[in-house]
């Protein structure tokens, strides 16, 4: 399938730091895709256990949910790198280059700020669950800090990619909003 936006994937040029961040995001993307595949297989296993073997399915639903959440949060940075987070680029498209550049800097800075806030409180929430020993209220009783870990890790990786994008924009390696 083709790209989701008129913008191209984020560029790194030959800058080693940007390339390293891109590699980390790609790795996170692989992990995310693997988790989605694992969720498919576990769900099918659950159906077999229940429908074919008429057995109990206690942990599968929960495992699949946590895998999907982790896949989403860990995938954020990779999708950011691919510029797959859909946006409305009507106004940026119609602006002269200088103003477009300033607007791109502003929106990037705001994005970094909100993601940093979520990272901060996400870490706090994770730590709270870890410290208090929270579990899920099911027979399986998962220690909740494990699935919650996806919040600080996912948003941390996203923050890393966003800062790299911001630097690429400042250094002129990448175009504002990825627009030519």
């Amino acid at each position: 399938m083709s790209g989701h936006s008129s913008a191209a994937a984020a560029r790194t040029g030959s800058n080693p730091v940007l390339r390293a961040v891109a590699a980390i995001s790609t790795l996170a993307g692989w992990v995310s895709a693997t988790m989605i595949v694992a969720a498919v297989l576990i769900t099918c296993q659950m159906i077999v256990i229940r429908y074919v073997l008429n057995g109990s399915t206690v942990w599968q639903t929960e495992a699949v949910i946590y895998l999907m959440i982790a896949a989403t949060l860990l995938g954020l940075s990779y999708v950011q790198r691919l510029r797959g987070h859909v946006n409305v680029d009507l106004i940026p498209l119609s602006l002269p280059p200088r103003i477009r550049f300033v607007l791109a800097l502003t929106t990037s800075a705001l994005t970094i700020a909100i993601v940093a806030v979520i990272l901060w409180y996400g870490y706090e929430y994770w730590h709270f669950a870890w410290e208090r020993g929270w579990r899920s209220d099911t027979v399986w009783g998962v220690k909740l800090w494990i699935p919650y870990l996806a919040i600080p890790v996912g948003f941390g990786l996203l923050l890393l990619q966003l800062v790299a994008d911001f630097i690429a924009l400042l250094l002129g390696i990448d175009k504002p909003f990825g627009l030519e």
């Binding site: 229940r50 057995g55 109990s56 399915t57 206690v58 599968q60 639903t61 929960e62 027979v139």
Partner: peptide
């Protein structure tokens, strides 16, 4: 769920 499983039921979570 624990009691019903003990009675031989199959537990489905949804």
């Amino acid at each position: 769920e624990q009691m019903l499983a003990g009675a031989g039921a199959s537990i489905a979570s949804m």
